[in-house]
Amino acid sequence: MILQALTSTTAVAIAQRRAGLADAGIRSGRARMLLLRNTLALRTSNALAFLTGFVEPVLFLVAFGYGVGALIGDVSDGEQSVSYAAFIAPALLAASAMNGAIYDSTFNVYFKMHFQRVYQAMMSTSLGPLDVALGEIGWAMIRGASYAVGFLVVATLFGLTTTWWSLLLIPAAMLIAFAFAAIGMSLTSLMTSFQQLNWLQFWMLPLFLFSGTFYPITAYPDWLQVIVQATPLWQGIAMTRSLAFGVIDMALMGHVLYFMVIGALGLLATTRRLNALFLR
């Protein structure tokens, strides 16, 4: 029995190294293992859903940018005048980052949480709730980034990118995905049925249509503009649009800050909730 106390296997040695740290109870520093798991899982089940995220914004760009755009002509925000396709392209990129993140963090997370019991298995290892939250949200960010890269290539082929600032659309898409995934996962972790998830989904379409995606929000009365400006997709679209048009200003910093704050809040809420669900 003395022997038993002294022998430590590798798993124990790894856990022992972290045991004294302040966040040892909630984090092992191995969130990347969720990325490994999700990459392996991608091969079998979620590949098609992943692909849809690439195709959807391109279809919208063709149908609205070039179809409807031919009827509209150029759009002006008072200073610059751009083609309708160039106007909606950054908005579609922001929306696809949002959609990918929400899909991952709601339906996928709910399924893993309640049917596959993947998180229950993870929490019976030395992983902690913050690892799980970071891993899943990180996965949504990777998805957001890959959509952004794909869409950027298409937009460039259509001749819609005019400035090197456009490259920053990739981290911008990741930031949008981070915030939406963090909020989405924290809400999903509170839900007890698929019906409640459908309510979440219910809000996605109006958010997509009315956040200044297809027309400037100056079309709304002032009071409504203020409300729309507080919503996350408008913040995302304002950020991607200003990057796409090379408008680098304080407002841009404001959008970045907005996403960092709500993302951090979502991450905190998710971690607390996972802890309550699986470790209490």
Partner: peptide, 9 residues
């Protein structure tokens, strides 16, 4: 394999 990776192996 993945479960082992969760332990950091």
């Amino acid at each position: 394999y993945v479960y082992g990776r969760y332990f950091g192996l």
